[in-house]
Design a protein around this nucleic acid. Structure first.
Length: 467
RNA sequence: GGUCCCAUCGUCUAGGGGUCUAGGACGCUGGCCUCUCACGCCGGUAACAGGGGUUCGAAUCCCCUUGGGACCGCCA
C-alpha cells in the first residue's frame, strides 16, 4: 500500500469559509493520521473571479488553523499546458469533440426541456459533426451513454448513477480555458491523490469525473464526500447566518484550536469525547467515523469551546494573542507581565479575546462608575473604612496577596464590618462595575492604580457627606 | 421537474438486533459553593419522522411515505 495523499483545493474567489475549513481539516487530519501527505492546490481557472488577494487570505487562514501542507500551493493557472495536452489526447482518442453550439442556443434548449418536463442536458448536437477548432467553439467530453457508474464512497457507501444521466460536459471553454470537472481529474490523477476528500456537493460530479478517469486511463482514487454544514434554518451556510469566514472568527477573538475542535465534531465523533487536542485528533481521526448527514452550525457550542480553551490555555500565549486586540481597542497594554495577570484574572469569566477587553476594560483605562452605582455603594458608612484601607494599602506591596489580605482583615476588625459588606463598594471603586474578578486578584494586578482609585472614591464620599 | 444523498433530544452526537425505561455535550433550567460575575459540583428538561415488513426480539436490517439537502453552468 502506497502512501496516503490527500489534498485541499479551494478556489480563490472568496475567503476560506467554515465549510471549506472543515473539509480541509478532514483531509489534513486523514493525511496526518495515516502518515501521508497533504497537498494544497489553488483552483484558479476562473480568471474572472479569482484573485491573488483571496489566495493570500486563504493561505493565511490555513496557517492560522495550523493546517500545514507538504506540497504546493500548486496553481491551476500555471498548469494550462498540461490540461490542453490531455484535451488533445481525448480528442485524438475520439473521446472528446469540438462543439459550436452557442450559450444562447443551449440556454434556450435548457429552458424548453425544463418546461416540457425533460432533462436540461446537452442533446449531442455536435457530437458527430467532426468539427475542428474555431472561434466560439468549445471541447466537450463524449460521456458514456449507457451502463451505470457506481463507486464506493468511504463516507456515503455505494453510489450509482445511470450513465444516461451524464451529459457531454465542456472540458475546454471557448476562451481556451479548461473547466473544473476536467482539471480536477487531471490534477488529482497527476498529483497521485489517493483520497479525494471534499464536500458532498460534489457527489453528483463524481460519476462524470470517473468517466474522465476511465477515458484517460487513470487509476481511480478513493472518494470521501463529507456532509455539508448548514445554517440554523437547515439551508446551506451563508452570510445571512452570521460570520462564515474563518478569519472573521479570528477577528472576533476566537482561538484556532477552538474552531478546529468545533469543526471536527461536525459529522464526526469519537464516542463521548468533546475536547480534542490536535495531537489527539491526528491519532484518533478516521474517515470511518464520519457521519453521512449534514450538520447545523451552532455558534453557542463554538463559544463554549472557545471559553474552554481560554480557561485552560497557556497564559503567556493567551496574553500574546490578546495584545493586538488591546492595541486595536486603543488601550495601553502596559507590558507582557501585566497582560498575563489580566488574562489570569478574567479567563474564567470571558468567552473570547474581545470579551476579555470588554469585561476587563478597567485594567486599561481610567474608570468612572455610573452615578447610580456610586450613590448606592460609595456611601458615607464606607468612608472611614476606605480611609483605613488606603492608609493600610498605601504602604505595602500589593502583589503580595497575603499582606493585602492582612490589611483587609485588620481594617474589617477595626471597623466592625464583614468582608461581604465591603466587597461591592471596593469593586465599584476599583472597576466602576458590580461584576469583576475577585477583589484580591484585581488589587494585585492593578498594583499602583489601586490607591489612586480608592482615593477618588474617597473624595466622592467626602464631597457627598459634606453636602 | 430529473438525478443523487440524508433522517436519534432545539443543536452536535453515542448507538452498528437483545446490555436502550436510548448515553454524552451545547443551550435552557433547579440547587450547592460564593466578595460580585463567573468557574466548579449535584440535579432537571428534551429525541429514535410516520407506516409496513424481516426476526423470538429492531433506534439498529429491508420497503414505502413524508420531510430535508445537494446537483442539473463556457462557476468551482
Amino acid at each position: 500500500m502506497s502512501e496516503t495523499r490527500t489534498r485541499f483545493a479551494p478556489s480563490p474567489t472568496g475567503h476560506l469559509h467554515i465549510g471549506g475549513a472543515r473539509t480541509a481539516l478532514f483531509a489534513w487530519l486523514y493525511a496526518r493520521h495515516t502518515g501521508g501527505k497533504f497537498i494544497l492546490r489553488i483552483e484558479d481557472t476562473d480568471a474572472e473571479r479569482s484573485t491573488d488577494e483571496y489566495t493570500q487570505k486563504i493561505l493565511q487562514a490555513m496557517e492560522w488553523l495550523n493546517l500545514d501542507w507538504d506540497e504546493g500551493p500548486f496553481y491551476q493557472s500555471k498548469r494550462l499546458d498540461l490540461y490542453r495536452e490531455y484535451v488533445e489526447k481525448l480528442i485524438e482518442n475520439g473521446r472528446a469533440f469540438w462543439c459550436e453550439c452557442t450559450s444562447e442556443d443551449l440556454e434556450r434548449k435548457r429552458e424548453e426541456a425544463l418546461k416540457t418536463g425533460g432533462k436540461p442536458k446537452y442533446d449531442g448536437t455536435c457530437r458527430t459533426k467532426g468539427l475542428g477548432p474555431g472561434p466560439g467553439r468549445v471541447v466537450r467530453f463524449a460521456s458514456p451513454k449507457s451502463g451505470i457508474t457506481s463507486f464506493e464512497d468511504v463516507i456515503k457507501g455505494t453510489i450509482s448513477v445511470d450513465n444516461s444521466e451524464l451529459d457531454d460536459l465542456i472540458i475546454l471553454r471557448s476562451d481556451n480555458m479548461p473547466t473544473y470537472n476536467f482539471t480536477v481529474v487531471i490534477d488529482d490523477a497527476t498529483m497521485n491523490i489517493t483520497h479525494v476528500i471534499r464536500g458532498d456537493d460534489h457527489v453528483n460530479n463524481t460519476p462524470r469525473q470517473i468517466a474522465l478517469y476511465e477515458a484517460l486511463g487513470f487509476r481511480l482514487p478513493v472518494f470521501a464526500h463529507v456532509p455539508m454544514i448548514l445554517g440554523s434554518d437547515k439551508t446551506r451556510l451563508s452570510k445571512r447566518h452570521g460570520a462564515t469566514s474563518v478569519m472573521a472568527y479570528k477577528e472576533m477573538g476566537y482561538l484556532p484550536e477552538a474552531l478546529v475542535n468545533y469543526l471536527v465534531r461536525l459529522s464526526w465523533a469519537h464516542g463521548d469525547m468533546e475536547i480534542f487536542s490536535m495531537e489527539e485528533l491526528v491519532q484518533l481521526f478516521d474517515l470511518q467515523n464520519v457521519g453521512r448527514s449534514a450538520a447545523v452550525f451552532n455558534p453557542e457550542k463554538l463559544l463554549w469551546l472557545n471559553h474552554h480553551y481560554i480557561k485552560t490555555g497557556d497564559v503567556k500565549r493567551l496574553a500574546r494573542l490578546l495584545m493586538p486586540f488591546v492595541i486595536e481597542a486603543g488601550l495601553d497594554p502596559v507590558n507582557d507581565n501585566f497582560l498575563e495577570h489580566v488574562v489570569e484574572d478574567v479567563r474564567e469569566r470571558t468567552h473570547t479575546l474581545i470579551d476579555m477587553i470588554d469585561f476587563g476594560d478597567f485594567y486599561f483605562r481610567d474608570i468612572d462608575a455610573a452615578p447610580e452605582l456610586k450613590e448606592k455603594f460609595l456611601t458615607s458608612e464606607m468612608l472611614p473604612v476606605f480611609r483605613e484601607l488606603i492608609s493600610g494599602l498605601d504602604i505595602i506591596d500589593l502583589t503580595d496577596r497575603k499582606m493585602t489580605e492582612n490589611v483587609f482583615s485588620n481594617v474589617l476588625e477595626k471597623c466592625g464590618i464583614k468582608f461581604k459588606q465591603l466587597a461591592q463598594p471596593i469593586r465599584v471603586a476599583l472597576t466602576g462595575k458590580t461584576a469583576s474578578p475577585g477583589i484580591f486578584e484585581i488589587i494585585s494586578t492593578l498594583g499602583t492604580k489601586v490607591v489612586p482609585r480608592l482615593k477618588n472614591a474617597l473624595n466622592y464620599m467626602e464631597s457627598r457627606t459634606a453636602q
